[in-house]
Lab assay of single mutants.
Amino acid sequence: EDTPTSDDLEQFAKQFKQRRIKLGFTQADVGLALGTLYGNVFSQTTICRFEALQLSFKNMCKLKPLLNKWLEEADSS
Rank of each mutant, 00 (worst) to 15 (best):
Q11C: 08
D29R: 05
D75M: 12
C48S: 14
K17S: 05
L55T: 03
M60C: 04
Q11M: 14
R49F: 02
F57N: 14
A33E: 07
P4L: 15
W70V: 04
K17A: 09
L37R: 12
G39C: 03
E1D: 12
P4E: 13
S76A: 14
L9V: 09
N40P: 12
Q27H: 13
D29S: 06
T36Y: 14
S6Q: 15
V41K: 15
L32N: 15
L34T: 01
D2W: 05
L53I: 12
D7S: 14
T3V: 05
K14E: 13
I47K: 02
C61M: 10
G24R: 04
A52I: 02
L32S: 07
E10S: 12
G31N: 04
K22H: 07
S43R: 06
S76Q: 14
S76W: 07
D7P: 08
D29Y: 06
A13L: 01
F12A: 05
W70E: 01
F12N: 03
A13R: 03
P65A: 08
A74T: 12
F12H: 00
S76L: 09
G39Y: 03
E1W: 07
K14H: 01
Q27R: 07
G24A: 02
L23R: 06
S43K: 08
K14S: 10
Q44L: 06
E51I: 03
Q15I: 10
S43G: 09
L53C: 14
E72I: 09
F57H: 12
T3A: 04
T36C: 08
G39H: 07
L66Q: 06
L9E: 01
S6V: 15
E1S: 07
G24T: 00
K64L: 08
D2Q: 14
S6K: 15
M60W: 02
K64M: 10
P65R: 07
T36D: 10
Q11Y: 12
F50A: 01
R19K: 14
G35D: 04
D7W: 15
L71R: 04
K22C: 11
A13D: 00
A52T: 12
P65H: 11
T46W: 05
W70P: 01
E72G: 07
R19W: 04
L34N: 01
C61V: 11
S77K: 09
F12R: 04
L23E: 03
L53F: 10
D2C: 09
N40T: 10
S76E: 13
E73D: 15
L63K: 01
F57Y: 14
P65N: 08
S6A: 15
L63W: 03
L34G: 00
T26N: 04
F25Q: 04
G39L: 01
S6R: 15
L32F: 06
A52R: 07
K69W: 05
N59L: 14
N59M: 14
E10Y: 14
S76M: 12
L66P: 04
V30D: 01
K69R: 13
K22D: 14
E73G: 11
S77D: 13
E72H: 13
Q15V: 08
G39Q: 07
S76T: 12
L71Y: 07
C61T: 07
F12I: 02
P4A: 11
C61R: 12
K17G: 02
S6F: 14
G35V: 04
N40G: 14
R49L: 03
K14W: 07
L32K: 15
T46N: 04
F42V: 15
D75F: 05
L9P: 03
A74V: 14
E10D: 06
Q15E: 13
T36A: 12
Q54R: 08
T26W: 00
L71E: 02
N40M: 09
M60T: 05
A13P: 01
I21W: 03
F42L: 14
S77T: 15
Y38P: 04
L53E: 05
K62T: 10
F50W: 01
C61W: 08
Y38V: 09
L66E: 02
G39S: 05
K22E: 14
I21Y: 03
F50D: 01
K69F: 06
T26F: 05
R19L: 05
Q18G: 06
D75W: 10
G39M: 02
E1P: 15
F16T: 02
N68C: 09
K69N: 05
E1A: 09
S6G: 11
N59Y: 09
K14G: 06
G24C: 03
I21T: 07
K14C: 08
L66I: 10
K22L: 11
D75I: 10
E73R: 08
T5R: 10
R49W: 01
E72Q: 13
Q44G: 13
T46C: 05
A28Q: 09
L71F: 02
V30S: 00
Q18T: 12
C61D: 05
K69E: 06
C48P: 09
L67Q: 01
S56K: 08
L23K: 05
E72M: 09
R20G: 00
G35R: 13
E51V: 00
F42D: 05
D29H: 06
Q18H: 07
T46K: 04
E1I: 10
K62E: 13
S77M: 07
L53S: 12
Q15A: 08
K64E: 05
D75Q: 14
L53T: 08
C48I: 08
I21E: 12
Q44H: 11
E73S: 10
G31S: 14
I47H: 02
E10W: 14
L67C: 03
L34Y: 00
T45H: 10
K17W: 01
K17P: 02
F42T: 10
C48A: 15
C48Q: 15
F42P: 04
T45K: 14
A74C: 14
S76G: 13
V30C: 07
K58E: 15
E73C: 14
S76I: 08
A33V: 05
F16V: 02
L34E: 00
D8Q: 14
E51Y: 00
F57E: 10
Q15Y: 15
K58N: 14
G31R: 04
N59R: 15
D7I: 05
T26E: 03
M60F: 04
D8E: 15
Y38I: 05
T45I: 06
N59G: 08
T26I: 02
G39I: 01
Q15R: 11
D29L: 02
L67W: 01
Q15M: 14
K17I: 04
D75G: 11
R49Q: 14
K64P: 00
M60H: 04
A74F: 08
L66C: 06
T3S: 11
L34M: 11
Q44D: 12
V41I: 08
I21S: 05
D8G: 11
A13S: 06
K14T: 09
D2Y: 11
A28T: 07
K69G: 13
G31I: 04
V41S: 12
N59V: 14
A28E: 14
N40L: 07
T3Y: 12
Y38S: 12
N68K: 08
P65V: 10
T26D: 02
L9H: 04
Q44A: 14
F12T: 04
A33G: 05
S76R: 14
L55P: 02
I47W: 01
L23I: 03
F50V: 02
N40H: 15
E51M: 00
G24W: 01
D75L: 08
V30Q: 00
F42M: 12
K58S: 11
Q15G: 08
K69Q: 13
N40C: 14
N68E: 15
R20I: 01
L71M: 15
L32G: 15
G39F: 02
E10N: 06
T36P: 08
S56I: 02
F16N: 02
L63G: 01
F57I: 11
N40D: 13
T45E: 15
D8S: 14
G35Y: 08
T45G: 09
L9I: 15
G31E: 06
L67S: 02
T36K: 14
L23V: 02
R20T: 00
P4K: 15
L37T: 14
E73N: 07
A33I: 08
D29K: 06
C61F: 06
K58V: 09
K14I: 06
G31P: 02
R19M: 09
K14A: 12
D2F: 08
K64C: 03
C61N: 09
